[in-house]
Design a protein around this nucleic acid. Structure first.
Ligand code: FES
Ligand code: FES
Lengths: 136, 136
DNA sequence: GATTATGTTGACTAACATACTCAGGTATCG
DNA sequence: CGATACCTGAGTATGTTAGTCAACATAATC
């Protein structure tokens, strides 16, 4: 049930950018504050940009900024984009359902559904603004 | 946030054995009902035995049975044994804590803690008996 | 006691995912 | 122009997953 380092790193970066909203931050600056290697961070920031969470400026005095207000960035969506579905099994995933062979009689499915619901409820109720303001 | 096929398979096997309690089941029978390949199932059943959930009998008319009553088999414990901690990050794991470098100032930790708590509460409250009786 | 049905053990493998690195390329500013 | 930044695609080392396979050990039965 682990979250990958890539997901964690992406969220760290979003938090750093959210804390310095209105300012532009270079990859190097973000790397310092997140402890993520520069070359790896480049990849992740680029992906976050393609997903629409960030905007960038090239060249001198370039860098990254949030492309949305922090309260419009839903943590559940970010994690889904980076790591795939939140559900523990495909058969209980709402965003990307996948059938199980035993689904008709399976006694586990209701349990997985409870897990999915509680994870999704938490992560889809939480925005970057909530994290930054420490209001969960 | 996926659960591995190994964990799913183990739970399927426990359910089959729980449904036929008092009787002995061969690996082949369990394999049929769970759709898990025999050779792979062997590994998993053996592990469940070493963990104390199952007992076995060798030779002709041999097979596997539950070693505990279904209401003594806690799903959270089974999953932890097979897949490691339930927590999404080491820094919020109770059973196997591991420090994060940014732990002091990290704004994510409280969120991960909520996730961990809600998963652990669900899985540690559920026993094999609950699954079999469809009472969640 | 030989046969046969069963679990036991350990090694092995193919495929995939993770967590990166690196070598360039391209836009922007001064 | 040239420095500074982001952009892009490829490559790599390591580990995990989901199995397979061959040989062995034990228990019941004929
Ligand atoms: S886990 Fe999908 S049907 Fe049982
Ligand atoms: S995730 Fe462990 S301290 Fe932030």
């Amino acid at each position: 049930m682990k979250v990958s380092s890539r997901g964690e790193y992406a969220l760290r970066a979003l938090i750093v950018l959210g804390l310095h909203a209105e300012e532009i931050s270079t990859i190097a600056e973000i790397s310092e504050q997140t402890l993520v290697p520069v070359a790896y961070l480049e990849q992740i920031l680029l992906q976050l940009k393609l997903l629409g969470y960030l905007k960038s400026k090239r060249g001198k005095h370039g860098g990254y900024m949030l492309a949305k207000a922090p309260d419009q960035i839903v943590i559940g969506e970010v994690i889904r984009s980076l790591e795939g579905p939140l559900a523990p099994m495909g058969c209980v995933s709402i965003t990307s359902y996948e059938a199980c062979p035993l689904e008709g009689t399976c006694l586990l499915k209701p349990l997985w559904a409870l897990i999915r619901d509680s994870i999704a409820r938490l992560l889809d109720q939480t925005t970057l603004a909530h994290l930054i303001e420490r209001k969960l």
